[in-house]
Simulated scan of single mutants.
Amino acid sequence: MTQNTPMRTATTIAIVDDDDSVRGALESLVRSSGYKTRTYCSALEFLAANASTQTDCLLSDIQMPGMSGVEMLEQLVATGYHIPTIFITAYPGAAPTLSADTPDLVACLPKPCDADKLLNCIEAALLQRH
């Protein structure tokens, strides 16, 4: 397991997924790697919490009721928030189509995610942010 560094313990990863078990598993993995986590059961909950100002990396499901992960990312960009984002999906053939002015997407991974690959994507996302 990777060591906790001051950068990691000061870094917040937001996890947005409507599936309780997936959200819990992702939170456990990310937290065990030394990051702070905040979890949300929907894109609307994430946006309503005004969590974008405290989020260093966004890990989100694509297909959720109410608002998709893609719609959430597009809304964040439209309001001036650029958060490196990793999408996860149970439908790997359905890669998201984003406009050219949305460079925030770091990766799109299938569910279930390979833990090492996900953590490497988070590292890449954080390098993009800093």
Rank of each mutant, 00 (worst) to 15 (best):
Q75W: 12
C57L: 12
D18S: 14
T79S: 15
Q128K: 15
A49M: 12
A95W: 05
T11N: 05
N50S: 15
I86K: 03
I62Y: 10
T53S: 15
C121R: 04
D114T: 01
P112R: 03
T9W: 10
R23H: 14
V77N: 12
S52G: 09
P84R: 01
G93D: 15
P6G: 12
T85Q: 01
V22A: 11
T5W: 03
L76W: 00
A124Q: 13
V70C: 10
S68L: 14
I62G: 07
P84H: 02
D19T: 13
L44H: 01
L105S: 00
T5I: 12
M64I: 07
S68H: 04
P84M: 01
S33Y: 04
A49H: 11
K111E: 00
L98Y: 01
D20C: 02
L47Q: 09
T39P: 00
M7K: 13
S52H: 14
E123H: 09
A125I: 09
Y40L: 05
D56A: 12
T9Q: 15
T11C: 14
G80S: 07
L76Y: 00
R31L: 03
A43S: 15
S42C: 08
M64N: 08
T102N: 12
G24V: 02
P92R: 06
L126C: 11
D19I: 13
A78I: 02
S68W: 10
A124Y: 12
A100Q: 11
Q75D: 11
C41T: 14
G93H: 14
L76M: 07
F46R: 03
R8D: 02
G34P: 06
T85G: 03
S99R: 15
R8S: 03
V77I: 12
A78Q: 10
D101Q: 09
L127N: 11
H82C: 10
E27W: 06
I15W: 09
A107L: 01
N4A: 13
Q3L: 08
T5G: 03
G80K: 00
L76G: 00
I13C: 12
P96G: 06
L127T: 11
L118F: 02
D61R: 04
M1W: 05
A48P: 03
T9Y: 09
Y81F: 15
H82K: 10
M67L: 13
D114R: 08
L105F: 00
S21L: 15
V16Y: 07
L59N: 06
E27G: 14
A124V: 05
Q54D: 14
G93K: 11
V16W: 07
L73K: 00
I13F: 02
N4L: 09
D114C: 08
I83K: 03
T37I: 07
L59R: 01
C57M: 13
D56M: 12
